[in-house]
Amino acid sequence: MAGQDTPTSFAEAALSAPPPDNDPLVERYLEHVRVEKRLAQRTVELYALDLAKLQANCRQADVALTAVQNLHMRRWVAQMHGGGRSGRGIALILSGWRGFYTWLGREGLVASNPVQDLRAPKAAKPLPKALSVDEAVQLAAFQGADGEDPALQARDQCITELLYGCGLRIGELTGLDVVASSQARGWIDLQAAEAHVLGKGAKRRSVPVGGKALVALQTWLAARSVWARDNAALFISQRGTRLTPQHIRVRLKQRSLQAGLATPVHPHMLRHSFASHVLQSSGDLRAVQELLGHANITTTQVYTRLDFQHLAKVYDAAHPRATVAGLKPAAKNKT
Rank of each mutant, 00 (worst) to 15 (best):
I188F: 06
P264I: 13
E135V: 10
V324I: 15
P121S: 07
V68Y: 02
G89T: 15
G293Q: 00
G240F: 03
L104Y: 11
G105Y: 06
Q289C: 08
D134W: 06
C58M: 09
P126Y: 06
A120L: 06
D62I: 11
Q116L: 15
T299Q: 14
L46H: 08
L279F: 11
D316Y: 07
V314D: 03
G99Q: 00
S112T: 15
Q246D: 14
I170Q: 03
V207H: 12
V314W: 07
Q116N: 12
S9L: 14
G144E: 13
R88S: 10
T244D: 08
Y101H: 11
T160C: 13
S281N: 10
A195Y: 02
L217V: 15
H72T: 05
L54E: 00
T304C: 03
M269V: 04
S273L: 07
N70T: 15
M80H: 14
I90Q: 00
V68F: 04
L327W: 10
S181H: 05
P7N: 09
V63S: 06
K129C: 04
R106Q: 15
W103E: 08
T244C: 07
F308R: 11
K328A: 13
Q309F: 02
E135D: 06
L173V: 12
L221I: 10
D284F: 09
Q301M: 14
L221W: 03
S9T: 12
L139S: 09
G105F: 06
E107F: 12
H277K: 09
Q153N: 01
A325M: 00
T8N: 06
K253H: 10
V324H: 04
G283T: 13
Q138K: 11
K212I: 10
P245K: 09
D134R: 12
L291K: 09
Q60A: 14
R185P: 00
W187A: 02
G84P: 03
L327K: 13
I93L: 05
A202W: 08
G165C: 11
Q183T: 06
N333E: 11
G186K: 08
Y315I: 02
T299I: 12
L15A: 04
A275H: 10
A222S: 10
A140S: 13
S276K: 03
H72Y: 05
T8S: 03
T335R: 12
T335A: 11
V178N: 01
V278Q: 07
F308P: 00
E45I: 11
F308H: 13
T335Q: 09
A48M: 08
I188K: 05
L176I: 05
W97M: 10
A154Y: 05
A233S: 00
A195L: 04
K129M: 04
R205L: 15
S112C: 03
A325F: 10
L176R: 02
S95W: 04
Q246Y: 14
E12P: 00
Q254V: 14
L243N: 01
G171Q: 15
Q238F: 07
I93G: 01
G3R: 12
R169P: 00
L176M: 07
A52R: 05
H277T: 15
V302C: 02
M1P: 00
Q157A: 13
R185S: 06
A61H: 09
K313W: 03
Q309I: 15
T160R: 07
G84Q: 06
L285R: 01
R106V: 12
Y303R: 07
F308N: 05
K122P: 05
L54A: 00
S112G: 02
H277I: 13
A56I: 01
A151Y: 04
R249Y: 04
